[in-house]
Design a protein around this nucleic acid. Structure first.
Lengths: 351, 351
DNA sequence: GGCGAGAACGTAAACGTTTTCATGGAAGCT
DNA sequence: AGCTTCCATGAAAACGTTTACGTTCTCGCC
C-alpha cells in the first residue's frame, strides 16, 4: 500500500542502504545521489515505518506522561508545557491520565513499556520508591513531579511550595496581620505537607510568639467553607486566613460572605495556586502562583537530558519558584503586584 | 536485556509460535502448555515488544488527538473523555496540542503517520476538506470535532450549538425579555457561526417583530467588555445580553458593574460553555453547558467503530446536546435549574 | 602506470513479532 | 486393524528498517 524504503530504492536506482543513509543524513553518500533519493522519496510520498525503525534502533521517539485524576487548568497547562518542549525535541507525547488507584497507575505504567523512551510522572500519594521499583522497566529514564525526594528516580522536579507559602506569610505579616490561620490540605498530599511546613517555618521566624493556628482541609471547596465557619465562632478571630489552595480559599470567602464579614476589612484571605477563578471572586483573591506550563517544560527538559545521557546519570533534585500575586483579599496597599520568590529554576542538589 | 519471546519459548520448552498463540489467546494450544508458557513469561517478566508487533500486524493500538491551541477546562475535559474511552478499548493516546498555524497542524498530522490507527481532530478554521486530503494518509480513520459537515471525513461530531442557543433564547423570552442582544464570536469559528444562527432562528421564531441586535466579539474577555460598553450608550437599552461564550459574558458583567448597572435587575446576561468561572462571578452566570468529557468519549467511540470496520465505512454526522443552566444573571425565577436540550447523542444523518 | 587510500555504494544480517504451512500423533470411525 | 480427521506443535517467512562489513571506484602520488 504505502511506499517502503525498497520502493524508494528501486525508484532512485540505488540500494536500500543508500536510501537510509541519504534520508538520515549519516553521510557516506554523494550529494547528487542524495538529492535523487530525496526526490524519489518525495515522489512516492515515502514515510519511514516508525515501528520498523524502532524495532532496530530501540528508540520510540515518544515519551509518556502519567497523571493522576486531575481537572482543569493544572492538567491542561502541564500538558501544554510538556508537549511544546517535547515537540521541539522531535518527540511524541503519550498521555495517560485520570488514574486514581495504585493498581490503575501501575497498569498504565506497564502498558507504556516499550512504547516510550522516558516518562514524566506526576506523583500521587501511592507513588513511592517501591512502586517505581516494581513497575518501572529498569533503565527507563523518568522525571518525577511534586514528589518526595527519597524516591529512587533519576530526577525530581518540585514546585517550591515551601518558599511560596513562606513568602506569602511574610507579606501578610508585612502588611500588619499577626493572628494568621492556616487551612491545610490532605495529609497524604506532598504539596499540602510542604505548604504547611512553609507556614510553620515562616510563623516561627516572623511571629515567634504567636500560636500556630491550623485548620483541617482536603483541598475541596466545601472543606474550605467548613474551615471558614469554624473561624467565625472563635472567641479571638484571626486577622487573616491562608488556605493551602485557592479552592478552599474560595470556600472560606463564601462562608464569610454568608456571615456578613467583610474581606479584607474584617478578615484577610489568601490562597495558593492562582487558579483562573481567583481573579474573578469578590474580592479578587491574593494567592501564590505556580507557573504550571513552565513546570511541564522544565520536566521535559530534564527528561530529554536524561535520555541523551547513555548510562544511569546521577539523580538530581530541582525546584521551581512561585510568584506572590497580591490582589485585594489580603488587604494589601498595592494592587496587582507580583513578587517572584525564585526567579529561575533552582538546582537544589545533584549527586 | 529484556526478555524476548525466544527466551520465553526456551524457558517453557516450546517454540516461539506456541508462545505467541498462548499469550494472544488465539487457541491451538493445550491448556496445560498454555499455563506453562504463561508461567515462564511471568517468571521472565516478558512484555511483548510493541514495535515488532506493530511491524507485522500493522496496528499500533494507539490513536492520536490533534488539538488547536486550547486552554483550561475544555482541553482537559476533552482529553479526559477521550483517554478514558480509549483505555477501555485498550488503546493508547498520542496527544499533539497547541497548534495554531495551518502548517503547524499539517506537520503534526503527518508526524502521526504510522504511529496511530486513528485520529480525533478538533478543527480549527483552516482544517477543511483540502487540508485533510493533503495531509491525511488515506485509509486512516478520523473523527472530526466541531467541524463543518462538508469535510470528506469519516465521521463528524458536533456540539449542538444551534439548539443550545435556541433553547436559551426561548428561556429568556419565557421569563419576559424581549429586546435581546447577541455578542458574536470570531467570523471564522464554526461554533460561533452556529450559535449566531441559532440566535437568529430563535428570534425569528419567538419574537418575529424584534430587530436582531448583533454585536461583534472575538470570544475574548475584553471584546465582551467592549460590547458591554456599547450597550450602555444605546438609546433604547436591550433587556438582555446573550454572549456567544462565557468569557465575553464575564466581560459584559464587568462593564455593567463599572457603570453601576444591576444584573439582572437592569439588564440580564447569559453566556455559553459553562466554564468554571461562571458559577463564581457575581451574579452567577446563566449559561449553556457543554458536556465536554462526554464529547470526547463519544468521539472516541465513533473512532473505535470506524477502526473496527474494515473497509471505508459510511460517513456520518452526529450531534451532542447541551444543557441550559439557569443561575441568577438572567433574572429567572428558578435558581440552579438545568434543562437538557437534547438528552443523548443524536444521530443526525448517515449515508 | 601501478599502487594505496579513502569514499561511495551494495549485500545481508538483525531486530521481535505473527502467521502460514507442514508434520506428527492421537483419537474416532468402520 | 486400518483409515481418516483433527489438533497441538514446530519451522520458517515476512514485516521495514538500520548498520556492519565487503566490494568497487576514483583519485592522487610515486
Amino acid at each position: 500500500m504505502t511506499a517502503t524504503i525498497k520502493d524508494v530504492a528501486r525508484e532512485a536506482k540505488v540500494s536500500v542502504a543508500s536510501v537510509s543513509r541519504a534520508l538520515n543524513g549519516g553521510g557516506g553518500v554523494t550529494p547528487v545521489t542524495a538529492q535523487r533519493i530525496r526526490e524519489a522519496a518525495a515522489r512516492l510520498r515515502y514515510v519511514p515505518h516508525s515501528a520498523a525503525r524502532s524495532l532496530i534502533t530501540r528508540r520510540t521517539h515518544a515519551i509518556g506522561a502519567l497523571l493522576p485524576d486531575l481537572h482543569g487548568e493544572f492538567f491542561s497547562e502541564l500538558i501544554r508545557g510538556i508537549d511544546l518542549e517535547a515537540r521541539s525535541h522531535g518527540l511524541h507525547l503519550l498521555v495517560s491520565s485520570s488514574h486514581d488507584g495504585e493498581e490503575d497507575a501501575a497498569a498504565a505504567l506497564r502498558a507504556m513499556q516499550g512504547r516510550v523512551d522516558g516518562v514524566v510522572l506526576l506523583s500521587s500519594p501511592h507513588v513511592d520508591a517501591a512502586f517505581l521499583k516494581a513497575n518501572l522497566p529498569d533503565g527507563l529514564p523518568i522525571v518525577l513531579l511534586n514528589s518526595d525526594v527519597k524516591n529512587g528516580a533519576d530526577a525530581v522536579l518540585n514546585i517550591d511550595n515551601f518558599a511560596g507559602t513562606y513568602a506569602m506569610v511574610r507579606h501578610l505579616v508585612d502588611i500588619g496581620h499577626q493572628r494568621i490561620a492556616f487551612v491545610g490540605g490532605p495529609k497524604d498530599n506532598y504539596d499540602a505537607r510542604q505548604r504547611e511546613a512553609g507556614f510553620r517555618a515562616a510563623m516561627a521566624k516572623f511571629l515567634p510568639g504567636e500560636p500556630v493556628r491550623l485548620l483541617a482541609g482536603d483541598f475541596g471547596e466545601s472543606s474550605g467553607y467548613v474551615a471558614g465557619r469554624e473561624l467565625l465562632v472563635m472567641k479571638i478571630r484571626p486577622q487573616a486566613v491562608f488556605a493551602a489552595n485557592d479552592t478552599m480559599a474560595v470556600g472560606c470567602l463564601q462562608a464569610f460572605k454568608e456571615a456578613g464579614l467583610a474581606v479584607p476589612g474584617d478578615v484577610a484571605v489568601a490562597g495558593f495556586d492562582d487558579i483562573p477563578i481567583a481573579r474573578y471572586v469578590t474580592p479578587p483573591l491574593s494567592t501564590v502562583r505556580v507557573r504550571i506550563a513552565e513546570l511541564g517544560k522544565n520536566a521535559m527538559e530534564l527528561l530529554a537530558d536524561l535520555m541523551d545521557r547513555p548510562g544511569r546519570s546521577a539523580a538530581s533534585v530541582h525546584t521551581l519558584g512561585c510568584d506572590i500575586v497580591v490582589r485585594e483579599s489580603c488587604g494589601a496597599h498595592r494592587r496587582g503586584a507580583t513578587i517572584t520568590t525564585t526567579k529561575k529554576i533552582r538546582h537544589t542538589s545533584s549527586r
